[in-house]
Computed example of a mutant assay.
Amino acid sequence: MIVISCPGQGSQTPGFLSPWIEDEANRTLLGELGEAAGVDLVLHGTVSDADTIRDTAVAQPLIVAAGILAWNALVDSPERAALVGGVAGHSVGEITAAYTAGIFDARTAGAFVGLRSRLMAEDAAKIVTSMSAVVGGVEADVLAALEENDLSPANFNGGGQIVAAGTPENLERLRENAPRGTRVIPLQVAGAFHTAYMADARDALAARRAEFTTADPVRTIWSNHAGEPVERGDEFVDLMVQQVARPVRWDACMASFADAGITGLIELTPAGTLVGLAKRGLKGTPAVAVKTPDDLDVAAQLLAGH
């Protein structure tokens, strides 16, 4: 079974959408997604610098749009789409996954990520916070160190990685006194996402939840809530709303992939992070990162072989 994975915030780089919109139809779609999200995605996906696209209100719509373009190019026929066994997204990548599963159409995905990103950016501006990856060590020791430093676990990424979130001062104290056997790596994000710092954003998004029309998924989709498959589109979107202020359980998602019999993983654009996690958490599973259109042939071969 092939699983499609959709990356989260922090995976974007300057100009990464340029090769995708050499195709005029993709350029038009990117413009439409930007209009729905309230962001100039053509500008930010091609010429904006790293600092500009680090802004949460820009980064999240860019990432979702990139995944939509890559998915459309990869499964360009019903026969190829039928080869996909299931999908999952990491954090904002869940919106991309909702599109690939048929829960959202493209414009709804664009509007939802535009609202989500603005609300999370507003929360992030209230107090300076950030995130760091804690790699290695014993999970119980890592969680204890986070609690001692008034930090929260934001992502359980599997493969021995937990992402800590909180104030820069507390993150630096964790880095200086890292638990035995760990490395603490600062991440280029603008807030303590998936923690209580995002409670206002979650509540505001919940208040507008009814604006977004959903359909039930046409293929298996796993949720970051606890790695479980979700059968109803409305339930999946409700879980996405709550996930704004809850830890991402990507470790549980990968465990579910394994239980379901995964035989290959394809990560949509901007790819690399989830393939890296799969190498540690799903050892031996073939994985392809679709970073540019040049990678589509290799991904299609993986699909065709399964």
Rank of each mutant, 00 (worst) to 15 (best):
R107D: 08
G67Q: 10
N157D: 09
G86A: 13
Q243K: 05
N157Q: 06
S5D: 04
L29F: 09
A300K: 15
N26I: 03
I21L: 08
G166N: 07
D297C: 00
V163C: 01
A304D: 15
E148N: 08
A97P: 09
E176T: 12
G89D: 03
R80V: 15
I266K: 09
V128A: 14
R246F: 05
A192N: 04
N72W: 01
T263G: 14
D200M: 05
L239M: 13
F257R: 10
L296S: 06
A133M: 10
W20K: 04
D216Y: 08
R232D: 12
T263M: 01
A73L: 11
S117H: 05
R280I: 01
R219L: 15
L296R: 05
R280H: 12
A300F: 00
M120Y: 06
T13K: 14
A106E: 13
T213K: 14
R280E: 07
L265C: 03
G166P: 09
H194V: 00
K126L: 13
V230D: 10
R175P: 08
A204V: 01
C6E: 03
L274S: 06
S152K: 11
G85W: 11
E94H: 04
A255Y: 01
A287N: 08
S130W: 03
V128H: 10
A25D: 14
N26Q: 11
P61Q: 00
E228V: 08
E169V: 12
R118Y: 03
P293S: 02
T100V: 11
R80D: 07
A66R: 05
L146A: 05
P61L: 00
L143I: 07
A255S: 14
G8W: 06
R246K: 13
A98D: 10
I127N: 06
L83H: 05
E267I: 05
D51N: 13
V134N: 07
L174D: 08
G8H: 07
G38D: 10
M120A: 06
L151W: 07
A106G: 03
D105F: 03
S5L: 15
K279M: 02
G284L: 02
A97N: 06
T96K: 04
A199N: 10
T52Q: 15
F16E: 02
F257D: 09
P270H: 02
L33I: 14
E139K: 13
G67T: 08
A192G: 12
G264M: 07
E24V: 12
L282H: 05
E94M: 04
T285M: 12
S256Q: 14
L205S: 10
G10I: 06
V75I: 14
L303R: 08
L17Y: 07
V39K: 09
S256P: 00
I68D: 09
T100W: 01
S91L: 04
R209V: 00
S77R: 09
P293Q: 01
M254V: 14
I63G: 05
P247R: 07
P286H: 00
Y197S: 12
A124Q: 07
A252P: 02
L83C: 02
G158D: 08
R232L: 13
H90Q: 13
A260L: 02
I4C: 02
D251A: 10
A109P: 01
E235Q: 13
D251E: 12
A289S: 14
T129V: 04
V184P: 12
L302V: 13
T46R: 00
E231V: 11
N72L: 10
R175C: 04
